[in-house]
């Protein structure tokens, strides 16, 4: 069988989606001919060739503003009329990861994907929601805090291999939510300091300050390395 995994992260490497896509590919190979391609690629012919004759299309992407990242959404919009012709009968699966701990917040994006299936005449397989997606970049999938994710990916891969449709599944790390939130907050502060940013600037503005700060060019000074 042939399976295409579409990596919907705008990043080419080290993204949570890329790591999840690679783990899925490892689960699906060698039982299936399984390739990963990037939605951010500008070569539409290459993407259509990757999808051609597939039995399953697996979209792996980060949740952006409660939905599908715009570049992947654009691709889906463009291919909705042709995809069932190049991959007739294919089942669509998606694994969506978000920065919040709660995996169920990926539910709306899965509905968008399901509606894409209906519009394009493909068959809906299953959605997998991955909460605290950023942890994938910090710990190995399948071990320690990501043991749950490893199990969820194996079950998801099993469904893909068998071409079955199943209820959406949601997975969160074996790691306490308060600790995840604390580490996330710390990480934002560390990154901001690394960019020479005073922490106060990460905090609230009054709308009256917008002109002074965001629109005055001070933000672009920082962009050039100033204070």
């Amino acid at each position: 069988m042939k399976i295409a995994i579409m990596d919907g992260s705008p990043k080419n490497k080290d993204s949570a989606s890329g790591l999840i896509a690679a783990a899925l590919q490892a689960e699906l190979t060698p039982a299936a001919d399984c390739a990963v391609c990037h939605a951010a690629s500008h070569d539409r012919d290459e993407i259509m060739a990757a999808l051609a004759s597939c039995d399953a299309l697996v979209f792996v992407f980060p949740l952006y503003v409660d939905g599908i990242p715009s570049h992947l959404l654009r691709l889906l919009d463009e291919i909705q009329n042709d995809v069932a012709t190049v991959a007739p009968g294919a089942a669509v699966y998606c694994a969506v990861n978000n920065g919040f701990y709660e995996a169920h917040q990926n539910g709306v994006a899965m509905e968008l994907m399901k509606n894409f299936c209906v519009r394009s005449g493909l068959r809906w397989g299953q959605g997998l929601g991955v909460g605290a997606g950023g942890m994938v970049q910090a710990a190995p999938i399948g071990r320690g805090p990501l043991a749950n994710l490893g199990r969820a990916l194996s079950a998801f891969a099993e469904n893909i291999r068998n071409g079955v449709s199943a209820d959406n599944s949601f997975v969160e790390p074996n790691f306490p939510k308060f600790l995840y939130n604390m580490i996330a907050h710390m990480s934002w502060r560390v990154q901001a300091r690394g960019n020479g940013l005073k922490i106060g600037r990460l905090w609230r503005f009054k709308i009256s300050e917008v002109d002074e700060w965001v629109q005055s060019g001070k933000s672009s000074d920082i962009n050039k390395g100033g204070k």
């Binding site: 992260s9 705008p10 990043k11 993204s15 951010a40 980060p62 952006y64 990242p69 715009s70 570049h71 654009r74 934002w188 990154q191 901001a192 690394g194 960019n195 940013l197 600037r201 990460l202 503005f205 917008v210 700060w213 965001v214 629109q215 933000s219 672009s220 920082i222 962009n223």
Partner: peptide
């Protein structure tokens, strides 16, 4: 499209760093 860099959060707070008119919208 968004590059997923988060620099609008940790480098130029409130403003996207990609230099086109999309960067103005939040303000």
């Amino acid at each position: 499209h968004c590059a997923g860099c988060f620099l609008c959060w940790v480098k130029t707070p409130g403003r996207c760093v990609i230099p086109d008119r999309g960067a103005d919208f939040a303000a």
